[in-house]
Structures are given as structure tokens and as C-alpha cells.
Amino acid sequence: MPKVKVRLYTILREAAGTREVEVEASTVSEALTRLLERFGSHLKGKLLDEETGRLRPFYNILVNGRRISYPREAQLALKQGDILDIFPPVGGG
């Protein structure tokens, strides 16, 4: 199982109490599952919509800096050393 790095930002970082974690996952979906297993309901509430169970609106997942479409690419295969960035909404300028 590949080891991948998951980096968290803003409210997710605050909820998890850490800015990055390493998880074993072969797909993006699995990486999210491992993340929720580790940090529990507090992170889940920030990350997923309670009613639909889908990623909250305007959240972004990047794999090695390339934005993916979630859940369409939830089964995207990960390889050893990949970096997942999970961003709550951003804006400004």
C-alpha cells in the first residue's frame, strides 16, 4: 500500500491539530477514509456535508498540485510519495 502525505489547511488544520499526516492509501477515496478514521467526527463535520456525505461545497483536493474533480476522480490511483492537499474554500486577491 503506498504511503502518501496529506496536507490540511485552515479550518481542517485547526480541526486535526496538525498540518500534515502520512496515510497508507491506494486511491484518493481511501486516503480520505484513513484521514477520517484518524481524526474522527470533528474533522468529518468540517470536511463532508452532513446530509449528502459528499465533500463540502467549494472544497478542493489536489494531487501533487493538480486539482482533481471529486467524487468523479475518487478512485484515482495514488503512488508512493504522492502529496494530497485538501483545501477548504479560499478567496481574495
Binding site: T10, I11, F58, G65, R66, V90, G92
Partner: peptide, 23 residues
């Protein structure tokens, strides 16, 4: 709106991390 809430909490420096990630 989630984006407005994020701006309220962190302001426009929010962009720094995202833009670093996308290069």
C-alpha cells in the same frame, strides 16, 4: 457562504497556500 466564512476567518492571505500548491 463557505467562501465568505473563510475570508472572515483568515482574510485574503488564504490564497498563499493554495497558490503555492498549484505552483
Amino acid at each position: 457562504h463557505p467562501q465568505a466564512q473563510a475570508l472572515a476567518e483568515y482574510g485574503t492571505p488564504l490564497l498563499v497556500a493554495y497558490k503555492q500548491s498549484i505552483g
